[in-house]
Amino acid sequence: MPSTAGRRLLVATMAVGLLVIYLPLAVVLVNSFNSSRTFSWPPRHFTTHWWSQAWGSAGARSALRVSIEAGLGATAIALVLGTMAAFAVSRYRWFGRDGVSLLLLLPIALPGIVTGIALNNAFRLVGVPFGLLTIIVGHSTFCIVLVYNNALARLRRMGSSLEEASADLGAGIWQTFRYVTFPMLRSALFAGGLLAFALSFDEIIVTTFTSAPGVQTLPLWIFANLFRPNQGPVVNVVAAVLVLLSIVPVWLAQRVSGEPVGARR
């Protein structure tokens, strides 16, 4: 245990740390009500004009829709492939099993730009037209590992004795999966799916290289409008909305698992 002075110093560091963590987010929220178009501080007048303008912004709306569609598509693929891979690794012994985790981790561990241009080049070679589909393919590639990690940990912890008991009692493999394995796996899949959706919703680098000119996700839309002064207020509002929305997954994960979120990434 540190001395009293040391303890005070630690408390102070913690407080300053938290202040610095939340100050920029708070500034974004306040700025969305700032009547001025510049970033000069402190703001002089309050307005909700930008919020109504953002509500009517066609670009932001269609970007939001693309983001949600891409996130749902990528999460669905990641759930299926990640669960399959987790079963193959946890329930069977085979040559090359130890390499699976590393292979799945690679799309996250390598810089996004590497994955991005590799996929971009491959789509060109094969002749796949760029659009929502290519965005989903790109996102699922790095989302699989999130579902896989969660499902694998759960499958290992619950062991296979209940599945064997179910088979002994005459259940076929589909029945065993549906009534024994899946219910025990559900919350792990939910956590993995939540992480996958959040990561997909936030991704910009791989998306840059897999999207088409007319198909923008929300991060792409923000980035495209970031440097345009007359779009500034609307970008402020969209940013503020995203800051507020980030509480949703935290709340959901707390309710489902009771564990601090992101504890395993």
Partner: peptide, 13 residues
């Protein structure tokens, strides 16, 4: 929770 929550806020934002 306080330290982790901002992880969910958009990187770009």
């Amino acid at each position: 929770v306080a330290v982790l929550t901002p992880l969910w806020a958009s990187y770009l934002v």
